[in-house]
Each structure stands twice: as structure tokens, then as C-alpha cells.
């Protein structure tokens, strides 16, 4: 029986956290948010240098749980870059039997080429201008890898989540490689993995909002004392902790069930995505309330997580859609 993080997993999270603290401080996030860029090469290269691109290689000795732990820290830091897309593309390319894509793998693992998700349509694609590959498909159709270049039209859009700028992408005669044919069980598993990685991003963001609020309550003084001494605020912060702390094990379980291919893995993925999306939104709202006026300013930066929570909730299916799927899967 082992159902808590190992020292090694905690060390990897610390390494990712430290790398992002160095390469993605608030000043960089502010500058990125005001720019037209949809990709940040320095922070991407720093993350890729840690080996995150290869976590989901079949022989990495790691699994979706480790990928989720990395995604959690990316969420905590509001990191740019399509980390989720990259890890999933590596997984799909490595396991595909299409010989044409085998040559793409090494550069993808190293992060020298970027892959981004265009699942379930391509209206909202992250880092589209930086991407060399688009992972496209739907649960019922084939899974494909589309190459950037001729036949690909990218139309950037103003994006709510400033840490993950989006574009609408259309494909018309672009170079396309089928990775898995429609009906291959791998495709449903890839979609489930995506849900769990988004849930992990939301977990990191919700934890960050809670931690920021607690820190602020300890230092901000009114009426001659730290505001964290007032029971009203104390109870709001306890509520945030009550939302986010038990959610860690939920994400672990969903990832563990996926890795172990347990029968309840698809349902756990849907339930985790729905639950964490709600937790994240509630925690970011509560964080703004806990900070008062400063939390409502652009400069303080809390709004990046608030916006990211809106992204994580809407992307790849709303809580209501996944709960409807979960109800179906339970045979209700």
C-alpha cells in the first residue's frame, strides 16, 4: 500500500517549481500578457531541459501520475507553453505504429519542436504560431498529427487566459499523419489523460490561490492586527483549504487509475476534471475576496489565475458535460 507522494516525486515537483520561479517570475508573466507572443522560449526550454517532454514515453519509468505532478506545478506558476499537448503528443507518437512519425519523436521529447492540442476541433489552440505539430481528433474519430506549414491557417484571438494565448486554426490540405484509427481504444485513453492533466493544472492553480491568500492574511494588517486573526476571514481561508487539500488525492487517484488501467479510470478522469474545475473557480474567486482591493488590480497578478481557472473549466468539456458522461458510465 502506497498512496502518497514519494520523496523522488516531491523532489521533481520542487525542481519544476524552482525552474519556473527562475524563468517565469511575475514580471515575465506581466510582460508576456501585454505582448503579442503566444509562446515563451526561455521558460519552455528550461522546462524541457528537466526532461518533462519524455515523462509519457513508454519506457520512461514514469507515468501519467508524474505528468500530472508536473502539470500541477505548471498550473501553480501559471506557466505558458503547451506542456500538456507536448507530453500527450510524445505519448501518442511513441505508441503509434505509423512509421512516418517515428522520426519526429526525439525532437518532441527534447522540446526542440513544439506540439499543441487541437482536439475536438481547432477553434482554441494554444501556442499555435510556435507549434510544429497539432494533435487533432475526437473521441469517435481518428487521432492525427498535423504538420504546421502549407494548408494551415492561424488566426490569433484575444484570449481570456493571458498565460495561454489562443488562436483559431484551420486545416485545408495540410500534411497529416494518422496516429491511431477511429475506434482504437488508445484514443479514449488519450482524451482521459488530457482531462487528468487539466485537472492537475487546476489543482496547482487552486493551491496557489489558497497559499497566496493565507500568506496575505498573515501579513496584511488592519485594526492594528493581521487580518488573518479575524474569524470571518479565517473561516473563508479554511473553506479554501477544505476545497483544495482533499482534491490532491483525487487527482492522484485518477492518474493512478489511468496508469494501472483500472476499469474505473475513464470515469475517474471525467469526475476529476469536473470537480477540479469547480474547485479552481471557487478558490480563485475566494482569493480575490480575501485580498480585497489589491486582488482586483491587474498589477497584483491574481487575475492570471482567475482567468486560467476560466480556461481550465471550459477547455475540453465543462463540468456539466463530464458529469453527464460520468452519470452514463455509472449506469444511472
Amino acid at each position: 500500500m502506497h498512496f502518497h507522494l514519494t520523496e523522488e516525486q516531491i523532489a521533481i515537483q520542487e525542481a519544476v517549481r524552482g525552474t519556473l520561479a527562475d524563468n517565469w517570475p511575475m514580471a515575465r508573466l506581466h510582460a508576456f500578457a501585454e505582448s503579442d507572443a503566444d509562446f515563451d522560449p526561455p521558460s519552455w526550454q528550461a522546462l524541457m531541459a528537466l526532461g518533462l517532454g519524455g515523462i509519457l514515453l513508454p519506457d520512461s519509468g514514469m507515468g501519467l501520475l508524474d505528468a500530472a505532478l508536473a502539470s500541477q506545478i505548471a498550473g501553480e506558476a501559471a506557466a505558458p507553453g503547451p506542456l500538456i499537448g507536448q507530453m500527450l503528443a510524445v505519448h501518442a507518437v511513441a505508441l503509434s505504429s505509423n512509421p512516418d512519425v517515428a522520426g519526429f519523436l526525439d525532437d518532441l521529447v527534447e522540446g526542440a519542436t513544439v506540439a499543441t492540442l487541437a482536439l475536438d476541433g481547432s477553434d482554441h489552440v494554444q501556442s499555435a504560431n510556435a507549434a510544429r505539430f497539432f494533435l487533432t481528433g475526437s473521441r469517435n474519430g481518428p487521432l492525427e498529427l498535423v504538420e504546421a506549414g502549407a494548408g494551415v491557417t492561424i488566426t490569433p484571438m484575444p484570449s481570456t487566459d493571458r498565460s495561454r494565448p489562443l488562436a483559431s486554426v484551420t486545416f485545408d490540405g495540410a500534411m497529416t499523419h494518422q496516429l491511431f484509427a477511429a475506434g482504437d481504444p488508445f484514443i479514449a485513453r488519450l482524451f482521459d489523460a488530457a482531462l487528468i492533466l487539466v485537472a492537475a493544472d487546476a489543482l496547482g492553480g487552486a493551491q496557489k490561490c489558497t497559499d497566496m491568500s493565507v500568506d496575505y492574511a498573515k501579513t496584511r494588517e488592519q485594526f492594528g492586527q493581521p487580518i488573518g486573526r479575524f474569524q470571518g476571514l479565517k473561516h473563508q481561508l479554511a473553506q479554501m483549504a477544505l476545497e483544495v487539500e482533499p482534491a490532491h488525492a483525487f487527482v492522484w487517484y485518477a492518474a493512478y487509475a489511468w496508469d494501472a488501467q483500472l476499469p474505473d479510470a475513464p470515469r475517474a478522469a471525467a469526475m476529476a476534471k469536473a470537480h477540479l474545475a469547480d474547485v479552481y473557480v471557487r478558490c480563485t474567486r475566494a482569493a480575490v475576496a480575501a485580498h480585497g482591493g489589491i486582488g482586483y488590480t491587474w498589477e497584483f497578478g491574481l487575475n492570471y489565475w482567475f482567468r486560467r481557472a476560466i480556461f481550465d473549466r471550459a477547455w475540453l468539456g465543462s463540468p456539466a458535460e463530464h458529469r453527464a458522461r460520468a452519470a452514463q458510465m455509472a449506469g444511472w
Partner: peptide
């Protein structure tokens, strides 16, 4: 929807008890 929403909390509680 309500059942699944509540079950999310039940699951979080259960897996936390494993932890």
C-alpha cells in the same frame, strides 16, 4: 448532475482517506 457533483466530494474524501 447533482449526484455527480456530490460524488466528486465523496471521491475526494475517499482517496484522501487512502492518503
Amino acid at each position: 448532475h447533482e449526484l455527480a457533483r456530490i460524488e466528486g466530494f465523496v471521491m475526494a474524501h475517499r482517496y484522501t482517506s487512502f492518503r
